[in-house]
Simulated scan of single mutants.
Amino acid sequence: MSPIIHTHQLRVRYGETDQMGVVYHTNYLNWFEVGRTELIRHAGLTYRQLEEKGMLLPLTDASLSYKKPAKYDDVVEIRTTVAEISPLRLTFAYEIYRLPEEELLVTGKTMHVFTSTDLKPIRLPRSEPEVYQWLESQHRGEE
């Protein structure tokens, strides 16, 4: 089965572009964060609630591949999946499309580790079984 794809749309704001009206490259990483935040929110959780449970997801690696530029006032869709999951690490994959053309603009991945609030690694599912089970079901393609 394929991972479940979570989608979130936004309109490119002027402040996200350079003088040519093209989205500045670092904004795609911000949009990746929007995608994973909304994916977790879909579970009925927020990052704040994860933190209150004593769990953080610090970023350890990021990769992006630029295909075409997004431009001012474009509507883009961020598609986020749980690409890999283990008791120690979590990898999200992203695709950003321009709508309504469904034109692929950027692909990428971010890797995170599960840590306590003092940044010590923790193992899931032992510490948060329901969070781990939900993320794993997203990876397996089960809603």
Rank of each mutant, 00 (worst) to 15 (best):
R89A: 03
L56I: 07
K67E: 12
F114T: 01
P100S: 08
S116D: 13
M111H: 14
D61V: 11
E52F: 04
I96H: 10
K68V: 09
L64K: 08
I78C: 05
G108E: 05
T60M: 10
T115S: 08
S86R: 03
T81A: 14
V113L: 07
H112V: 04
E103K: 14
S63Y: 15
E77R: 10
L59G: 09
T115V: 04
P100M: 08
R79E: 10
V75Q: 13
A70C: 07
K67L: 14
Y66I: 04
K71T: 13
P58M: 02
I96A: 09
T110V: 12
E84G: 02
T80Y: 07
R89S: 04
E103C: 13
K109F: 11
T110G: 06
T115G: 06
F114Q: 06
V113P: 05
V76S: 08
H112C: 04
S86D: 01
K53H: 12
L88E: 04
R98A: 11
R98V: 10
K109D: 10
A93C: 04
E103Q: 15
S63Q: 14
S116T: 12
L105K: 03
V113G: 05
V82W: 07
V113N: 03
V106L: 09
I85M: 01
R89M: 01
H112E: 09
D73P: 11
L57M: 09
S63H: 14
T60D: 05
P69R: 05
T110H: 01
L88S: 12
L57I: 13
T60P: 01
E101A: 13
P87Q: 02
V106I: 14
P58I: 02
R89D: 02
T80M: 12
V75M: 13
R79S: 12
L90D: 03
R89T: 09
V106Y: 11
R89Y: 09
L105Y: 00
L88N: 06
P87K: 01
S86F: 02
E84P: 01
R79P: 07
A83I: 04
L105G: 00
L57F: 07
E84N: 09
I78F: 05
T110E: 05
R98N: 05
V106F: 11
L90K: 00
G54T: 02
G54W: 00
T107Y: 07
E52I: 07
M55G: 00
V75A: 11
D74F: 00
I85D: 04
L99P: 00
